[in-house]
Simulated scan of single mutants.
Amino acid sequence: MATWFITGASAGIGRAVTEQLLRAGHRVAATAGDASRLKDLSGNLWTADLDVTDTEAVRDVVSRAFGELGRIDVVFSNAGRGAVGAAEELSDEAIAEQIAVNLTGPIQLVRAVLPHLRAQGGGRIIQTTTMGAQISSPGASLYHSSKWGIEGFLESLAPEVAPLGIGVTMVEPGSVRTGFGAALSIAEPMAAYAGTPAGQVHRYVAASGGNLTGSAPGDPVKVAAAVIASAAVDPAPRRLVLGSDAYQAVRAALDARLGELDPALAASTDFAA
């Protein structure tokens, strides 16, 4: 039996992972903004309300979970939210919230769990990012900024904590049928962007009725199973690209990025031998 600590456990991938773990007999410390949404679940379940943007609350809940449950094998950082709008359209408040939920919150969660993982001799940190941490699209600049940012943090973290027996994995799903979009932060459209790609994004979101993933190719049950299986892989896989759409988009983005490298130009700025 393993013990998992999960944020964003009440919906989407976090909910699917929680359900599968409980059915398999594992113990889950499940947290959500409103943990009452987990009351229908049964099994070896510990719950707590948690707003990941509240750093003191993160530290308190993490401390209570480790204190009451003892060893926690896997920390699954899954809470997140999307923001839509051209960079100029986004309010200061929307920018601050997006960074707090998707970047600062996960960073502070990692910082809160590390002392406990070190003390117990190791563990696993799994972070849900997105294929949007490798690609980008107009109208979602802050969302991509937050996801690229958390991956940069985790890339640096992984070799820091590997000698301590702590593995780090980034989960990069494509579009998954999770109801993503119902809680989007949507900026007020500006007329100047109506005929631009950012304006097209606004119209697409409005036409979706809040359900951006209703026909998405990704199966949340299969994504959850892949996340759970990754925890048993040693050494920890650095990334899980999940979904055929994610594979194609990420591969194309990486190929394009490599194609932008000019070795002659790069070498031309060195000091002469």
Score class of each variant (00 low, 15 high):
83 A>C: 08
15 R>L: 14
166 I>S: 01
191 A>K: 13
144 H>I: 06
230 S>K: 05
269 T>D: 01
160 E>W: 11
48 A>R: 09
210 G>P: 09
70 G>V: 01
239 R>P: 13
161 V>M: 06
96 A>P: 01
15 R>T: 01
259 G>R: 00
114 L>A: 00
1 M>G: 10
17 V>T: 13
213 T>L: 06
36 S>A: 12
181 G>K: 08
106 P>S: 04
231 A>Y: 11
102 N>C: 11
56 E>Q: 15
261 L>Q: 11
170 M>G: 03
73 D>I: 03
147 K>T: 01
184 L>P: 02
146 S>E: 00
191 A>H: 10
234 D>T: 12
227 V>P: 05
165 G>H: 11
244 S>L: 10
138 P>C: 00
228 I>R: 00
139 G>F: 10
273 A>T: 02
170 M>I: 15
249 A>V: 11
243 G>P: 05
51 D>E: 09
234 D>A: 07
157 L>T: 06
158 A>C: 05
98 Q>V: 12
78 N>H: 11
221 V>Y: 08
205 V>E: 07
46 W>I: 06
200 Q>H: 12
82 G>K: 02
7 T>H: 07
264 A>S: 12
239 R>Y: 15
87 A>R: 00
141 S>T: 13
237 P>D: 03
160 E>H: 09
7 T>S: 13
151 E>S: 09
36 S>Q: 11
167 G>F: 11
257 R>L: 09
120 Q>M: 06
113 V>F: 13
105 G>V: 02
121 G>Y: 07
184 L>Y: 14
89 E>W: 10
25 G>R: 05
33 G>K: 06
256 A>R: 01
129 T>G: 09
150 I>R: 08
137 S>L: 03
14 G>M: 08
82 G>I: 11
8 G>W: 02
237 P>Y: 06
47 T>Q: 10
206 A>T: 14
76 F>Q: 03
273 A>W: 05
127 Q>K: 04
184 L>N: 14
236 A>W: 12
154 L>A: 06
237 P>H: 04
242 L>E: 03
163 P>H: 07
95 I>K: 01
43 G>D: 12
53 T>G: 03
47 T>E: 05
15 R>M: 02
198 A>N: 09
57 A>P: 02
193 Y>T: 11
97 E>S: 11
86 A>C: 05
131 M>R: 00
76 F>H: 14
15 R>A: 12
246 A>W: 07
231 A>H: 08
267 A>R: 10
179 G>L: 00
246 A>R: 02
213 T>H: 03
162 A>T: 15
123 G>V: 10
238 R>M: 14
262 D>M: 02
59 R>W: 09
111 R>C: 01
57 A>N: 02
92 D>E: 12
107 I>V: 15
221 V>S: 15
83 A>S: 14
29 A>Q: 07
23 R>G: 05
102 N>M: 11
96 A>E: 15
68 E>G: 11
222 K>H: 08
188 E>P: 12
6 I>K: 01
103 L>G: 03
181 G>S: 10
48 A>Y: 08
